[in-house]
Design a protein around this nucleic acid. Structure first.
Length: 837
RNA sequence: GCGAGAGUGGCGGAAUUGGUAGACGCACUGGACUUAGAAUCCAGCGCCUAUGGUAUGGGGGUUCAACUCCCCCCUCUCGCACCA
């Protein structure tokens, strides 16, 4: 026996160098094997990796290595989401150029990732800030523009005063900037938009394709965000037509309650407000109200406990069916940018309208009531929005209200007073950013020709790097003449370039596809490679992207398909999604300000990469948050040292055989049979846990059990060839099963066993059903469902024998003494339950 | 309010088809080895009034048998929230 300490540092460097030099994980799409594309969300190159990255990428690496061993041609790439604000902020703070800062960070983080031994195909590495990448994005922009999926419009936009840029709706969280938590303001700006709403229906419908593959809550969040509502747009004629309008339209999901309309409420921003007020004696009061509401902070205006307020405009519309006069009010709760910016008021059927009507003493007219009940407007305390029968609704009386929705809409359509309508909560995606460190938008403004797209052959529009970043954070591009001034691609005259850059979420919306053909300088992708690799089979990342990045990528997939870049049959980019939990410390998020950050590099220095990987996977199932534990990682380290010790101490009896490499004939002793059975059962369990269920914690636990069994058996097992084979096979199995998780240690010991080829190229072991059979088993003995004893019995014992043995058991007899046995339930191989009273 | 998920020892967590609850690990306790410590090894470890009783957030139900299925309730986390 030799004593030898496990020393990860030397081993890990050795294998990492080898993987790098031999390009061990580079692959092509020319392969007979089935493909498997596993992808982890690429990082922003902030400077250093944190534990969240380690967890994310360790999960991905186990999947990649495991699938590779299970016979798949695995694409497992890595890159950098490299444009974005932090680079500019760092530039201001440290007086380095954003590009320099970004590339230095990439170099640093790449080295950190390589120290963790991840099996990436580094030949496919991308950085989105390189022209070789963003040139294709500029091309997509032009094609989308051509197709009408990009447009320019002036509208109130989310403006972050601290970041000096607009934000997409998805980037405003509770009224605050997603990056810096500043209060978002509204600002009228002309911006470029991607028409994601054109895909609203498809984005919603295709979520059903992802059921089972994506977590339910992510699907729910997307559904929610898209927010499809079906109903009708109804036109109410104005009693007195105003300039440019003779009617006001409302959107409703409840056309069945149309006869209950007793007023109408307009958003203070509604374009007709000023015209409706003409000649009204209290117009100034109304104007003041509208002004006050319009100027309210958006956050306050959307808050929970904002009291509903309104004011009568003096104007009336006419009910489309009854011709009754409907007073027009302004209301602080009506959203200008949803539906038509005006809603019909049905106090009997809508709680908000009910409260509004009570407050301002407006009439309440019951039009839908629960079957068998009579609602009385005078005594009602809340609106009835449930199902029921239509009343006070003319020809529709007596109709079920669900049927009524369609019937009323049909009649509106016949009379030209309305139409069936679908509304989305989803808004088009503002992709303009007033920032420097981003991909230039390839558009030119010419006094003669107007807005002119750059010519495709002139791409890329290079982001100039010889620019000094402004101290105030504003983009230097507008005042960089070499960039901003240009010739009009159409008339050749002097023109100005668009100086806004693209939202960085545009880059991350298609990067997964670029990996399939990352070095192509003739086209964004090779169609063959795309057809082979897409979609991504397993995507892994944080749930914080449940809407933002994942929605945008889904949209891009559909849009690029319709532009002819992606295969026609491709509907969704990511078939399966795993949202990994966060790594916490002391129950909270790690943060510099709290001083509870655990630095992966320190941990690698102390314990080695294998231990860090092992602990991240063992601590909890991947979806769940877990609390970093300093004693927990000690345990992981201890286990690997234990494997190392077992190997080195028993090296003299280890034969160079492979996992599951012993024969049934080798396991002649009870010890041998037991160990061999445990070995095969472990292969069975880890294969399922690691390759299918992604429950790495239980897979690791199973291997730990096998190692424990080996420790217990080593004294009892003999040193004959057959026993050596049984023991060696178990050792080979431990190394093979553990290799996706702790590849360095496993490769090292594998090589030391005398195997010339690396473990990474080994096939996943095959377990043998026959090896898992047991002659004698333990059966539970229950009396009235309570465990009273156990029984050692032959595995094949039949029901009658089991029943007899159970009834003869002393413990059972003690508990059935004086009782009459009514029934005996025998589950062969499991238990016997005696029912007695 | 709506939607999703969760609730099991001192802690992280197992229990995949309803069939011996607490695998595996952490922490802890005792022992061995040691001048001592570290490391390692062995043993113990849900709770209690302990040959038994009791226990998977609480209450009911189905069943020979329930962490698992059904009904009601409580708590926590996350997301959305005046979307007409």
């Amino acid at each position: 026996m030799t004593q030898e300490r496990y020393n990860p540092q030397a081993i890990e460097e050795k294998w990492q160098a080898r993987w790098r030099e031999e390009k061990s994980f580079a692959i092509t799409h020319e392969s007979d094997k089935p493909k498997y594309y596993v992808l982890e969300m690429f990082p922003y190159p902030s400077g250093n990796i944190h534990m969240g990255h380690v967890r994310n990428y360790s999960i991905g690496d186990v999947v990649a290595r495991c699938k590779r061993m299970q016979g798949f041609n695995v694409l497992h790439p890595m890159g950098w989401d490299a444009f974005g604000l932090p680079a500019e902020n760092a530039a201001i703070k440290h007086h380095v150029h954003p590009a320099q800062w970004t590339y230095a960070n990439i170099d640093n983080m790449r080295a950190q990732l390589q120290r963790l031994g991840y099996s990436y195909d580094w030949s496919r590495e991308i950085a989105t800030c390189r022209p070789e990448y963003y040139r294709w994005e500029q091309m997509f922009f032009l094609r989308l523009l051509e197709k009408g999926l990009v447009y320019r419009k002036k509208a109130p936009q989310n403006w972050c005063p601290s970041c000096h840029t607009v934000l997409a709706n998805e980037q405003v969280i509770d009224g605050l900037c997603w990056r810096c938590d500043s209060r978002v303001e509204q600002k009228d700006l002309t911006q470029w938009f991607l028409k994601i709403t054109a895909y609203g229906d498809e984005l919603l419908a295709d979520l059903s394709l992802l059921e089972g593959g994506w977590p339910d809550r992510v699907l729910a969040m997307q559904r929610n965000w898209i927010g499809k509502s079906t109903g009708a747009t109804v036109s109410f004629a104005l009693e007195k037509a105003v300039e440019g309008a003779s009617a006001i339209e409302v959107f409703t999901t409840r056309p069945d309650t149309l006869f209950g309309v007793t007023f109408m409420t307009l958003a203070p921003e509604h374009p007709l407000v000023e015209k409706l007020l003409e000649g009204y004696e209290k117009a100034d009061e109304v104007r003041a109200f509208a002004e006050r509401i319009r100027n309210m902070d958006r956050l306050d205006r959307q808050s929970d406990n904002l009291e509903k307020e309104g004011v009568f405009t003096g104007a009336y519309a006419l009910h489309p069916f009854t011709g009754q006069r409907v007073p027009l009010w302004l209301g602080n709760f009506v959203l200008a940018d949803y539906g038509t910016g005006a809603v019909m008021g049905v106090p009997s059927g809508d709680q908000r309208d009910f409260e509004f009507a009570r407050k301002y003493d407006l009439p309440i007219r019951v039009v839908v009531q629960p079957r068998g009940e009579n609602l009385d407007p005078a005594s009602m305390t809340e609106a009835w929005s449930g199902p029921g029968v239509m009343v006070n609704s003319g020809a529709f009386d007596g109709m079920d209200n669900e049927t009524g929705k369609k019937a009323v809409t049909d009649r509106l359509e016949q009379e030209g007073k309305g139409r069936s309508t679908t509304q989305f909560r989803l808004r088009d995606w503002n992709i303009s950013r007033q920032r420097f460190w981003g991909a230039p938008i390839p558009v030119i403004y010419c006094d003669q020709c107007g807005v002119v797209p750059e010519k495709e052959e002139n791409l890329p529009v290079l982001l100039p790097l010889d620019v000094k970043v402004r101290e105030d954070g504003r983009s230097p591009l507008p005042e960089t003449p070499a960039f901003a001034n240009c010739a009009c691609p159409r008339c050749g005259g002097p023109a100005r370039r668009e100086t806004d850059t693209l939202d960085t979420f545009v880059e991350s919306s298609w990067y997964f596809a670029r990996y399939t053909d990352a070095r192509d300088d003739k086209a964004p992708f090779s169609p063959d490679a795309l057809r082979y690799w897409l979609p991504v089979d397993q995507y892994i990342g944080g749930v914080e992207h449940a809407i933002l990045h994942l929605l945008y990528s889904r949209f891009f997939t559909k849009a690029l398909r319709d532009l002819g870049f992606f295969p026609q049959g491709l509907a969704e980019p990511f078939t399966n999604l795993l949202t990994q939990g966060m790594v916490l410390k002391d129950g909270g998020k790690m943060s510099k300000s709290k001083g509870n950050v655990v630095d992966p590099t320190e941990m690698i220095n102390k314990y080695g990469a294998d231990t860090v990987r092992l602990f991240c996977l063992f601590a909890a199932p991947p979806e769940r948050d877990f609390d970093w534990s300093d004693s927990g990682i000690e345990g992981a380290s201890r286990f690997l040292a234990r494997v190392w010790r077992l190997f080195t101490e028993e090296e003299d009896r280890l034969l160079p055989i492979k996992a599951c490499g012993s024969a049934a004939a080798d396991a002649t002793s009870a010890e041998g049979r037991d160990l061999r059975r445990k070995e095969h059962l472990t292969v069975k369990k880890t294969g399922e846990d690691m390759g299918a269920r992604f429950q790495f914690n239980t897979a690791i636990a199973a291997v730990m059990e096998l190692v424990n069994a080996m420790y217990l058996s080593r004294e009892k097992l003999g040193r004959g060839e057959a026993d050596k084979r049984v023991f060696s096979s178990a050792m080979a199995t431990v190394l093979t099963l553990l290799s996706p998780i702790t590849p360095h240690l496993c490769e090292e010991l594998w090589q030391r066993l005398g195997h010339p080829a690396p473990l990474a190229d080994e096939p996943w072991p095959q377990w043998d059903e026959a090896a898992t059979f047991q002659d004698m088993i333990t059966v539970a003995l229950q009396v009235n469902g309570k465990l009273r004893g156990t029984l050692e019995t032959a595995a094949g014992a039949d029901k009658a024998a089991l029943e007899q043995a159970a009834l003869a058991d002393p413990a059972v007899q003690r508990h059935t003494n004086g009782l009459t046995v009514r029934k005996v339930v025998v589950v062969p191989g499991k238990l016997v339950n005696i029912v007695a009273n």
